[in-house]
């Protein structure tokens, strides 16, 4: 059981990384990754929603009639999304403000729906959680990596602490949309390249 757990956890990190391999959940990756702080917040929110809804969906998978499974998944996912939204508004207002509409949009983050449909609704709870955690952490790693590059070159700071000398003028392109698109393209190309190298 434990080995299986690790197998599915690692699957989400690299082999089937939701962002770079499956090309899902991109919107929030690009929109939020201007600051590392926002990336970590978004990653935590996604991990929470993904894990909780995968667990619940896996637990109720035998009671859910097949015809209405999609609406039921939607209700479960949106419940956890609303919880995250309200809790963030109450306890982390600046972070919630910075991410704005992208917190409610977690509900349509394709990663969560895709994992619910393809994995959680077919597997026992423990494995569903393993898969959800793997996917969530894989998502967080990618978004944070992009966030580090964008904040470092865009503002010359990491987590709002200056890294470069004061004279450094931020690279605007990194903060604006084009830089985000370019960076994600480079990341996918790098991942393709590294996977090719590891597995000849």
């Amino acid at each position: 059981m434990m080995r299986e757990f690790w197998h599915y956890f690692r699957n989400g990190l690299l082999g089937e990384n939701p962002v770079l391999k499956l090309m899902i959940g991109l919107c929030s990756v690009l929109a939020v990754s201007v600051r590392v702080e926002n990336c970590l917040g978004m990653g935590a929110a996604v991990i929470f929603v993904l894990t909780c809804s995968s667990l619940v969906i896996s637990l109720i998978r035998n009671f859910v009639p097949n015809e209405v499974r999609i609406p039921i998944f939607i209700v479960v996912i949106s419940t956890f999304t609303t919880i995250v939204d309200l809790v963030m508004k109450a306890y982390l207002p600046p972070l919630s403000k910075a991410m704005g509409i992208f917190i409610p949009l977690i509900v349509v983050n394709c990663i969560i729906m895709a994992r619910a449909e393809a994995f959680a609704s077919r597997k026992p709870p423990l494995l569903a959680v393993a898969d959800a955690l793997g996917m969530g952490v894989g998502y967080t790693l990618v978004i944070t990596a992009i966030g580090v590059v964008r904040e470092l070159f865009g503002y010359g700071e990491i987590l709002s602490h200056p890294v470069f000398p004061r004279a450094y003028q931020g690279m605007m392109a990194m903060i604006l949309p084009p830089g985000a698109f370019l960076l994600i393209g480079i990341s996918i190309a790098l991942l393709n390249w590294s996977l090719k190298k590891v597995k000849p």
Partner: peptide
């Protein structure tokens, strides 16, 4: 080779985004 598929699509998107700026 490594740019085939999605990566080059994102580079094209980047240029489009610059135009829309």
């Amino acid at each position: 080779q490594f740019w085939q598929g999605y990566p080059i699509v994102f580079v094209a998107t980047c240029l489009l985004a610059i135009a829309f700026l």
